[in-house]
Nucleic acid binder design. Structure first.
Lengths: 208, 208
DNA sequence: TAGATTGTTAATCGATTAACAATC
DNA sequence: TAGATTGTTAATCGATTAACAATC
């Protein structure tokens, strides 16, 4: 069977399409043309929207456009939002607390199953419905739960050692909120949330 | 005078190069070849590093590579880290607090000059050396300070109205931490910190 | 000098856009 | 049917890579 590979750029745009669909729907639109759809999505043309969607099937109606509720359903399927993916959080400081109390995870098919911290004052606290556990139990809990994804919101100086530990316990994907460039085996995927780089790009654009 | 435009992708990689340079330096390296430099920078080849750097001048030495301290200095110049750029923060909740107590801003040439919130319990508090002001004073403070950049860490339902207000007060670049797709005039630049999209991409890679 | 690596050119690759036949 | 827009092809554009002359 031939496996069609979806371009990386397309994968990156899909969540944006879902957000935009939900926005249009909440504004009362039942359908939208590709033109109307990409209005206010900077850098995305109607042609690219049509091409991106066409990788997954024929969702539009020639002459009229796309039915929003149907599109939302399809995008939620493609993005597998009906399956709950377990994620752990390491580091329950201010940022960790913001993540634990963020209601978006649920909407996007994620469940933060456990949170960890090394501060005795924080261990045992319940934040956003999750009880914070000791970092000492990290590896054990990952192995028991079988969790494959982790968010890393610890201080920079702990980032690499925590990474080594969660990777050896079975974590395969890491969302890294620290400024550290983590070293991991090549089969492990790391994505960074890099605020400073984003700010610098913004700054660069304002100057240009 | 001809203005050489730097590719967007190159601009995005520069902060990463600075981080990697500082990492190498802190590990005791005084110099590095392009090969050694891009080790552990996934998706970046030595050729692309050399090409990116060559847009700004000849920083390497043929036969030996790049001198790290010199490279750090050059990158800090290119990225204009010697100039302090003023940024305001709107929303001093958990995420806002994490930003206010993040020491990276200073290192990257940013100063959070003011923070705003609408919660009376938070207004007047000092967080990370910045006193939280009332959102009612937002426009006035922006105009007096002449700030051009803002970070938006407010609840989703306030995001668009706060945006309208800061844009009318003179803000030209926004780093958006909310899930809302902001509508702004086309001369205003918005960048998003989109955690759910990053998690979804990560998730997609683990499945594939 | 001999060995090594940069800076740069030309070739390749992939993604975006323009354009239009198919069709609702 | 007439008008409009999708889905898709071919052309364009831009970014990455391979390769090597220049040179430290």
């Amino acid at each position: 069977m031939e496996k069609l590979t979806i371009p990386e750029k397309t994968v990156e745009r899909l969540p944006l399409y879902l957000r935009r669909s939900e926005e249009l729907y909440s504004q009362g639109s039942e359908s939208a043309t590709s033109q109307k759809f990409v209005k206010d999505l900077p850098g995305i043309s109607s042609a690219i929207l049509r091409k991106d969607l066409s990788y997954f099937g024929n969702y539009g109606k020639k002459g009229t456009g796309y039915e929003i509720p149907k599109l939302i359903g399809r995008l939620r399927e493609i993005l597998k939002l009906h399956v709950e993916t377990k994620v752990i959080l390491v580091g329950a400081g201010n940022l960790g607390t913001a993540l634990l109390t963020n209601s978006e995870f649920d909407h996007w098919g994620f469940e933060i199953t456990s949170a960890f911290d090394s501060d005795p004052d924080v261990i045992g606290e319940e934040i956003g419905g999750v009880r914070v556990q000791s970092s000492q139990d990290l590896e054990q809990v990952i192995q028991i739960e079988g969790t494959k994804m982790a968010m890393l919101a610890v201080p920079a100086n702990n980032a690499q050692s925590v990474t080594d530990s969660i990777v050896s316990a079975g974590i395969r994907g890491i969302l890294n909120f620290t400024p550290i460039l983590l070293e991991v085996p090549e089969e492990i995927t790391v994505k960074r949330v890099d605020i400073m780089s984003k700010l610098k790009e913004l700054n660069y654009h304002l100057d240009t």
